[in-house]
Design a protein around this nucleic acid. Structure first.
Lengths: 186, 186
DNA sequence: AAATCAATTCGATACACATCTAATTAATTT
DNA sequence: AAATTAATTAGATGTGTATCGAATTGATTT
């Protein structure tokens, strides 16, 4: 889950907390000292420290009725190393619906009966439509040009353009001479 | 200035922006695609991209009436390397008033006439008071015990404790036999 | 020239959060 | 036992900001 990563950045996305981290990088401090140094109320310091502790950057040890806070240098090094790793990058996108763009394009160009209003002028959108159209073909089966046209006609009258673009974009293949088509398996 | 560092973390302290960075780590995207993938309005995407651009993480190139955004991998690597460097740490604390704690303690324990209400029980506070008291002594000069007591009496009646703590905390030194004291130069 | 399209900007809104005060807790000192 | 002290928690307040809709801009297509 990438919520963890957001929490980590949020923990450091505050001027006061960055100062606290900077101070604790020199030596441990009590909350009272931090409050005086940052000119903030103890309750505010408490609030900040809990956010830093939540992501494991600082820990507290009791000393009298003080709490002395220290930076977890190891956690900080670990963070430095992994923050922008490819694991974190893919974690960030894991709950992104990668087909949402195709669906939106399809919705924008579809009529209520499921046929296409028109063929998009923009390449990216045309590609999205083609990825949808090609699903009407069975994998492994061969089609004559006439069969291809009949299927494509369910989507749009301009079957020639659709057919050409499907091949041009590598979604279908055509045997040079005989006019046979088949869906390219991915 | 450390404001820059806060801005950087703030740029990444948002779930939507982390997703954008994650997506752009795979390949460049247009704003329209990002809007569909994240299920956000184009204006919101624009807002996020400007924040990411502000810290140099993404750049845009025009392509038709599209803008295609790409991740600046180099900026990202540079950030990874320097984020928690000692330079950044000291930059974060550069505008922290390091004497504020001593001043606060002094204020808490001082009477209107400048004398001390009492000597703090807590070690850290006592140390702060001692650092203040020792300023009354000239560097390089030797004092008899009687002279020391006269000076300390301006702060508090318990001159014996003050004297002992000054030596014990390494702020003054005493010659073993003759009872001569001097301020330790730092 | 007119229409379309992606992007940006501007204002408005709702939610998040830094900070404070007051009350409470836990520990220590008197 | 009572008083002091640091820390935490809870509630209140103000600022910041993510998001949206509407209007504008700049480019392209018809």
């Amino acid at each position: 889950m990438s919520e963890e990563l957001v929490t980590f950045f949020k923990a450091l996305a505050d001027s006061s907390r960055l100062k606290i981290v900077g101070l604790l990088a020199q030596r441990p401090y009590s909350g009272e000292e931090l409050a005086a140094l940052l000119d903030l109320k103890p309750s505010t310091i408490s609030h900040h420290l809990s956010k830093l502790a939540e992501v494991g950057l600082v820990s507290a040890r009791a000393e009298g009725y003080y709490s002395v806070y220290q930076l977890d240098e190891q956690a900080l090094r670990a963070a430095t190393r992994s923050l922008f790793s490819s694991e974190q990058m893919s974690a960030a996108t894991e709950d992104v619906d990668m087909d949402a763009y195709d669906r939106k394009v399809l919705a924008d160009f579809s009529l209520p009966d499921g046929r296409l209003k028109e063929l998009p002028a923009q390449r990216k959108k045309l590609e999205a439509i083609l990825r949808y159209v090609v699903k009407a073909f069975e994998p492994g089966r061969r089609y004559s040009e006439k069969e291809v046209n009949e299927i494509l006609a369910h989507f749009h009258a301009d079957t020639a353009t659709l057919r050409r673009e499907l091949v041009g974009n590598g979604l279908m293949e055509r045997e040079g001479g005989g006019g046979e088509y088949w869906k390219k398996d991915i």
